[in-house]
């Protein structure tokens, strides 16, 4: 869940690379194997695996090996709307309290 700044930084660092963004977009359409994931990219399987590892460390993606096939999918806990929603709730209240402070400041002592 995106409830801490270090986690957010990891997520954004993971997404700062165009290949990894493309991987996330592809996984947004459903889970696929690493070799399927590699197909549209002109890069080796190990290179793709390295990108997947960065995405996994950020919590955005999770992968599972069944037999000889490693399947990747978006980890909804990191990218979940619920996680975002909670963050937005907090931000909403922080903004409200900022405005409350401004309203109070306008009032005479």
């Amino acid at each position: 869940m995106l409830n801490s700044q270090p986690q957010l930084d990891l997520v954004f660092q993971a997404l700062s690379d165009p290949t990894r963004r493309a991987i996330v977009e592809r996984l947004g359409r459903g889970p696929v194997s690493v070799s399927q994931l590699a197909q549209p990219f002109a890069m080796s399987l190990p290179a793709v695996l390295q990108h997947v590892a960065v995405l996994e460390a950020s919590g955005l993606v999770r992968s599972e090996k069944v037999g000889r096939v490693r399947t990747c999918q978006i980890d909804s806990r990191a990218l979940s709307v619920a996680g975002r929603w909670i963050q937005e709730r907090r931000t909403t209240w922080e903004r409200r309290l900022d405005r409350l402070g401004a309203v109070l400041a306008e009032q005479p002592d």
């Binding site: 979940s80 909670i86 922080e94």
Partner: peptide
């Protein structure tokens, strides 16, 4: 799905 969460915000106002 159900996700539970708690958060706290503290502010000090000069009033």
């Amino acid at each position: 799905s159900v996700v539970h969460s708690t958060f706290t915000i503290e502010r000090t106002f000069n009033r």
